[in-house]
């Protein structure tokens, strides 16, 4: 039982780790203020869940989930990335909420507030007892792939251009780069990764509903990135680990002490204070951005 709890925790760390890496590409390295991360997570979750329920194999659902998230990433990026940075934040935040309302109201497709039940779990019948072990390994394989992919592109000429855009976009024009194309591309990649994460989430819990996709999820991922160390892929995974740990830890406290406060509120307070402390005293996060030695 305790082992199951650990594995469950690890699975969530992996799922959030992938989200944090995807946000890190956009916001950490390129300073694109995506406050609608949850939207692309939800698209991956719903697309993959709907296809699986309709009988498609897990991998087919996953691929379609990734492609749809990427496509919506492109569609949102196209107008939004032409705007100033603060407008991007507003547009993405609104997109996430509009999408959630869409899932809530389009009953014919999403079953509305009741959510989608019985999302098939890949290889469930075969593995039976070892299912959690299998799922943990699978999530971590995807986490490692996303990590390696991000590291690879950030150490390439493409990544250097992203970092330069973050520091001074105008100066990048002077070297002949069309910064808009770079921003759109990284936004598509980040959205695709969020799609992976969403699909893994949906098939793990086997039930999704619109109230799992509030903007608070986006902010939770932002917290992981800021506390973990933006522009450091290991750092943001550490952030995912720490936030998961805190979220779960606060649930236990109520078994040992009389808090006089709802544990989920306590969690928000603790994470909020931690975030403020980090921004004030350790803005580079747990693991700071690594200098690339050439």
């Amino acid at each position: 039982m305790f082992q199951d709890y650990i594995l469950d925790t690890l699975i969530y760390i992996g799922i959030y780790g992938i989200l944090a890496i995807s946000l890190n590409l956009e916001a950490g390295y390129t300073r694109l203020m995506n406050f609608g991360k949850v939207a692309f997570f939800a698209i991956g979750a719903y697309a993959s869940a709907l296809l699986s329920i309709a009988g498609a194999p897990f991998l087919a659902g996953l691929v379609v989930g990734i492609l749809l998230s990427a496509m919506f990433g492109f569609l949102v990026a196209l107008p939004a990335l032409r705007l100033r940075a603060d407008y991007l934040a507003i547009v993405t935040l609104s997109f996430g909420e509009i999408l959630r309302l869409f899932f809530l109201n389009e009953q014919w497709l999403t079953n509305g507030p009741m959510g989608l039940r019985g999302i098939p779990q890949p290889l469930f019948s075969v593995l039976d007892n070892n299912y959690l072990v299998f799922y943990t390994v699978m999530v971590f394989v995807f986490l490692i792939i996303c990590y390696a992919f991000s590291e690879k592109i950030m150490n390439s000429p493409f990544g250097i251009t992203l970092k330069a855009i973050r520091d001074d976009e105008d100066a990048v024009f002077a070297f002949g780069e069309d910064t808009f194309r770079f921003k759109v591309k990284v936004f598509i990649i980040g959205s695709a990764m969020a799609g992976i994460s969403g699909a893994l989430f949906a098939h793990y819990i086997a039930f999704i509903s619109p109230d799992m996709f509030f903007p608070s999820l986006t902010f939770s991922v932002w917290t992981m990135m800021v506390i973990g160390g933006s522009a450091n892929n290991l750092g943001v995974i550490a952030g995912a680990f720490l936030i998961q740990f805190l979220e779960r830890g606060t649930r236990f406290i109520k078994d040992f002490a009389d808090l006089g406060i709802e544990p989920s509120n306590l969690r928000i307070i603790i994470i909020g204070i931690l975030l403020i402390l980090f921004i004030l005293y350790k803005p580079e996060g747990i693991i700071k951005e690594r200098k690339r030695i050439l």
């Binding site: 592109i153 000429p157 250097i160 970092k163 001074d168 100066a171 951005e289 690339r292 050439l294």
Partner: peptide, 28 residues
């Protein structure tokens, strides 16, 4: 002078190069 603050001197030089490949597909 506008410097890219989070980049090293060599990274700045690489950014300036016209011969570099910024394509993602080619990277793989």
């Amino acid at each position: 002078t506008r410097v890219f603050r989070h980049m090293t001197v060599l990274e700045c030089m690489l950014l300036a190069s016209k011969t570099h490949d910024t394509g993602i597909l080619k990277l793989f």
